[in-house]
């Protein structure tokens, strides 16, 4: 039956109301998990706070495994959901640029909005930077439009690329994520003994 809106179970007029409600839930979860603080977020890269890794990977594995169950029970037609298209080289480049932005700015777009919401000026400045970055990208677009559109592989999934079933991927991600959780728990304990001035 699902996805509900594209299949007409919910009239399209509700689209924006639902967007608002889902957004509220998203913002609430991000803020309540501690993503409104850049020092919490970057802790994952220095070993003193792995909250990003925990929340992010738990979310990914829960959603992955959940999608397979939803598909099995016939609630969700996986062939109808939006699969992010793959542009190999531009995406790798974009990922590296974002990684640099992540470590310098300490936020990602979603978390910076929740930081603004609780009064963090660095979040606001980050969002201004985001705005300027996208604006600059648009202005310079003709320079790299060929590169931007290169390597188009279409809306492919991991299964399409490798031929391995989604169950294997879900299980693999779960095993990697769970082992990461246990390892980082030990790392965090050790690093925190050394860092004293950090107060969440």
């Amino acid at each position: 039956m699902g996805p509900l809106i594209p299949n007409g179970f919910i009239p399209g007029d509700w689209n924006f109301v639902i967007a608002l409600l889902l957004g509220i839930a998203f913002g609430f979860i991000l803020e309540a998990s501690g993503f409104s603080s850049s020092r919490n977020i970057v802790g994952v890269f220095y070993g003193y706070n792995f909250v990003v890794l925990r929340v992010f990977f738990t979310a990914v594995i829960v959603a992955m495994v959940g999608l397979i169950y939803f598909d099995y029970f016939g609630w969700l037609d996986l062939s109808q959901i939006f699969i992010l298209p793959t542009y190999l080289a531009p995406m790798i480049t974009g990922g590296v640029i974002m990684g640099l932005g992540f470590i310098l700015g300490g936020f990602c777009p979603g978390t910076s909005f929740t930081a603004i919401a609780i009064g963090k000026m660095d979040g606001l400045v980050f969002t201004i930077g985001l705005y300027l970055g996208i604006f600059a990208f648009s202005l310079g677009y003709p320079l790299y439009s060929d590169f931007y559109n290169s390597g188009d592989m279409g809306n492919v999934t991991l299964m399409d690329v490798t031929g391995i079933s989604s169950q294997w991927f879900a299980f693999g991600f779960v095993v990697i994520a769970l082992s990461a959780f246990w390892v980082t728990m030990l790392i965090e304990k050790r690093v925190r003994k050394r860092i004293t001035e950090y107060k969440f």
């Binding site: 495994v65 099995y72 169950q167 299980f171 779960v174 769970l178």
Partner: peptide
């Protein structure tokens, strides 16, 4: 919780569509 997640993930194999 770790075991629960592993069981849930492994369970997806049983429901080969």
């Amino acid at each position: 919780l770790t075991l629960l997640m592993l069981v849930l993930a492994a369970g997806t194999w049983l429901l080969k569509k």
